[in-house]
Design a protein around this nucleic acid. Structure first.
Length: 831
DNA sequence: GGCTCCCGGGG
DNA sequence: GTGTACGGGAGCC
């Protein structure tokens, strides 16, 4: 018997000799790749029989056929469980193979003696991980022996896997890559038609064995191109053909042996593109450590998976998990790298790449540099986010691959599924399709917002309830399992939900409230340790407390999320209802204590001190806290010398909160302004940016008005060049498939009539020209009109003004102020 | 006002 | 693979 210690990274299973064998791909403690095999885990699910019916024998004797295979139940166990607040007898039903479970479910669901079938859709590997407490990225010890298997890494067969030390850190080997493709201007990206031109690789962690004493490791940099040109870039390597380029791609991954392969939008672009090119040349992309091929799953969410190697699409992680913590509203590599790394993409016109490629222009250096830089930025982002990813992995016990592709609701659900067995809970099922449609249609009453009066304020203090919804859920025992319990009927206090009498159990703490309070207190403990520490070694703890917070904050949304297993509309309603109660309560009390309340929203209030002092405000919050239940707490968020509120009511969709504040140390904080979308003209984008700059930095409102007026005036007098009024919209399907004919569809039809090949993906650029017709009939190709033919009024009223209108409403200017002729011109008459 | 469509990321 | 899932804004009808 041998013993090895290893960190699981990617876990899968295979049926070998009619037995499911778990494969745990990972790294040994001394940094070697390994695959640990375990074949002692049996698939199972739960059956909840109707009260009074004994179906154990029926189950044991049951048999069905699928093709030629006989499917039966290998054994059953009667277990005492809790299911949505009730104690029940359930039957744990074991089968031979995971794939037998859906077959049995379909058969059993027709049995009259069965109340419900549960946990029949929990993937085998996840079930194994939950039941055996496997947490990726933490150290385990396995006992067994090395055996021969058809794998690229040594295989170790074990009967026993146990946690070793949880705190040792593994440093995964990350390799980043990026491709550039041949994409002539105007056309869509077409993997079937157009080749990959180059592939860049970048990595910084160099294998221990390659390190030389005293020499600092150089990053691994490569750009492979399949046409020759003169270059001095030492990382550029030429190959003879695109097919050879793809072979190189395989070779680098094979020799570098990354634990994590990362890219930016590589789920949706790079890997599917490489796959479709490889298919064309009949090249097998057998990158998996078990020699399996790269799996590209099409559909609404394209994913690309390699067995044994974690494919991390860092874009997906950033958009799903980090979006809320970033200022940027755009998640392209340039915007994200600018904010997170303070670095930019190289400024290169990619249309020229295809031209250069066609004409075999002397040097392609700048494109190679651009390509490598993109790979480098993705690497840096992945490296920077590793602590966060690692903590989410450790808290949820999901692999990096899975965490990467989940949103908050799924993370909450998997966290609950992981906790459920420890609390002896059987998980509720996912909703049926009909149920899903019903749930989707419902909207619940949200938070209370006390709208601020637009304008300028001084000496402001902000208070907020720390983790308001999570603490409400915990303190008021809100969950589907405690909702309207029979044990407290008529005795428990009603939740403040309007027009409904609902209550939550006051005798027994529910599953979800217990879990959420655990998350909150764990976070509080860590925060206490991290407090005021700036040392590097506290970064991990900081990432951990942040993850705990994000997770706890997602529970409310989860309870009201239509696809949730523990969905409970009443619980979600009660949470916001209590939220409204508490925020209104603190507003009243602030007013009664002599503060002026200027703004309140969900969990925070803003007051002005006027004659009172900061100390008075702090004393006030202390008094509030004495009366709050459980873990609820009102915090002093900060003091702000001044700020501007922007009128929020523009759209009918819930009031957005828009304001700008200046903190005591002069930092400007802007909240709530949406980005300008791609399908708006450049002139609208530019104007909004400039207005922000003038108002916030130069504090010169009049100058901002004048600036917009000048733009409006320039538009009226056609001084704005044509390229700033072009709107670009992509075709999503074939022209014939369109029912609604938007402007871009009309323009595309004209192109088609002229014999130009337009189809899905074609970016249709158009300019709205003058006239009284509807917009699509006035939309023309930029090429077919003259500089001055665009419709100034359209660009003023539908593009530029909407982008700045809200800002100016605050400053007391109407739309007319911005659009009427420039003041100077009017005044000129007086002098 | 509802319905339908587009967008994102990537070259 | 014991499947697995967007969400918000704009313009037509």
């Amino acid at each position: 018997m041998d013993k090895i210690r290893f960190y699981p990274l990617d876990i899968t299973y295979k049926v070998i000799n009619n037995k499911p064998v778990i494969h745990l791909f990972g790294k040994t403690a001394d940094n070697k790749q390994v695959c640990v095999l375990y074949d002692d885990f049996e698939p199972y699910f739960y059956v909840i029989p109707k009260k009074g019916s004994d179906i154990n024998n029926d189950l044991k004797n049951f048999e069905t056929k699928r093709n030629d295979e006989t499917i039966s139940i290998t054994k059953t166990e009667t277990v005492k469980k809790r299911y949505l607040g009730n104690e029940i007898d359930a039957i744990k039903v074991f089968v031979k193979l995971p794939s037998h479970i859906p077959v049995l479910r379909e058969e059993l669901k027709n049995w009259n003696s069965i109340e419900s079938i549960n946990e029949n859709d929990i993937l085998f590997v996840r079930r194994f991980m939950i039941d055996n407490n496997i947490v990726p990225l933490t150290l385990y010890e396995a006992e067994g022996e090395f055996i021969t298997q058809k794998l690229k890494v040594p295989a170790f067969k074990t009967k026993k896997i146990e946690p070793f030390e949880s705190d040792t850190a593994i440093k995964p080997r990350i390799l980043s890559f990026d491709i550039e493709t041949y994409t002539p201007g105007y056309r869509e990206i077409e993997p079937e038609k157009n080749p990959i031109i180059m592939i860049a690789f970048y990595a910084e962690d160099v294998a221990e064995e390659n390190l030389q004493p005293g020499v600092s490791p150089k990053p691994f940099k490569k750009v492979f191109v399949w046409k020759r040109f003169k270059t001095n870039l030492d990382y550029v390597e030429f190959v003879e053909s695109e097919a050879e380029l793809i072979e190189k791609f395989k070779e680098v991954i094979g020799t570098y042996k990354p634990d994590i392969l990362t890219g930016y939008f590589s789920d949706g672009f790079d890997l599917p593109y490489i796959k479709s090119r490889a298919d064309k040349y009949k090249i097998k992309l057998d990158l998996g450590l078990d020699f399996s091929e790269l799996k590209v799953k099409k559909g609404i969410n394209v994913t690309a998976q390699i067995t044994g190697i974690t494919h991390l699409d860092i874009f997906k992680f950033i958009r799903k998990i980090m979006a809320g913590t970033l200022d940027t509203n755009q998640y392209n590599l340039n915007a994200v790298a600018s904010e997170m790394l303070d670095e930019k993409k190289h400024d290169v016109d990619l249309d020229e790449l295809s031209e250069a490629w066609d004409k075999e222009v002397e040097s392609m250096d700048k494109f190679c540099e651009y390509n490598l830089n993109d790979a480098r930025l993705s690497y840096k982002l992945a490296a920077k986010l590793m602590p966060t990813i690692r903590e989410i992995v450790k808290i949820t016990s999901l692999t990096i691959y899975d965490v990467n592709r989940m949103g908050f609701s799924q993370l909450v659900e998997w966290y609950l599924l992981k906790q459920a067995p420890q609390f002896n809970q059987i998980a509720p099922n996912k909703p049926s399709n009909d149920e899903l449609i019903k749930r989707r249609a419902i909207r619940i009453k949200g938070a209370f917002v006390f709208e601020p009066k637009a304008g300028l304020y001084n000496n402001m203090v902000i208070f907020d309830y720390r983790s308001l919804y999570p603490t409400i859920i915990g303190s008021h025992n809100i969950s589907p399992g405690t909702l309207n319990c029979s044990c407290c009927e008529g005795e428990a206090k009603s939740a403040p939900v309007e027009n409904e009498n609902i209550w939550f159990c006051e005798k027994r703490k529910g599953f979800i409230p217990t879990i959420i309070e655990d998350l909150i207190t764990r976070r509080m403990r860590i925060k206490e340790i991290v407090k005021d520490q700036t040392d590097e070694k506290f970064a991990i703890l900081d990432a951990r407390q942040n993850t705990l917070k994000l997770l706890a904050n997602s529970f409310y949304g989860y309870l009201g999320f239509y696809a949730a297993r523990w969905y409970s509309l009443n619980s979600a309603e009660a949470t916001t209802a209590y939220g409204r109660h508490y925020i209104k309560d603190v507003m009243n009390k602030a007013q009664n204590s002599g503060f002026r309340v200027i703004y309140g929203d969900t969990d925070s209030i803003m007051i002005t001190l006027d004659e009172k002092t900061k100390e008075d405000a702090i004393k006030f919050s202390e008094k509030i806290n004495q009366e709050l239940p459980g873990l609820m707490e009102l915090e002093f968020d900060g003091f702000y010398p001044s700020g501007i509120f922007v009128s929020a009511k523009m759209s009918d969709f819930g009031a957005k909160k828009r304001y700008a504040l200046i903190s005591e140390n002069g930092v400007i904080i802007i909240k709530g302004f949406e980005s300008v979308r791609r399908n708006t003209s450049l002139i609208a984008k530019e104007t909004q940016e400039k207005v922000f700059e003038i108002i916030l930095k130069e504090k010169d409102n009049e100058k901002a008005v004048q600036y917009v007026k000048r733009v409006v005036d320039d538009l009226r007098n056609k001084r704005v060049p044509l390229d700033k009024v072009i709107i670009s919209i992509q075709l999503q399907k074939e022209l014939s498939e369109y029912d609604a004919r938007g402007p871009h569809v009309a323009v595309a039809q004209k192109l088609k009539n002229r014999g130009i090949n337009v189809g899905p993906g074609s970016a249709i650029r158009f300019v709205v020209t003058m006239g009284n017709d509807i917009i699509r009939n006035r939309s023309k190709l930029p090429e077919e009109i003259k500089e001055h033919e665009y419709d100034s009024d359209y660009y003023i009223n539908n593009q530029v003004i909407p982008s700045v209108e809200r800002i100016f409403n605050v400053l007391g200017h109407t739309k007319q102020d911005l659009t009427e002729a420039k003041e100077q011109t009017k005044l000129e008459g007086f002098f």
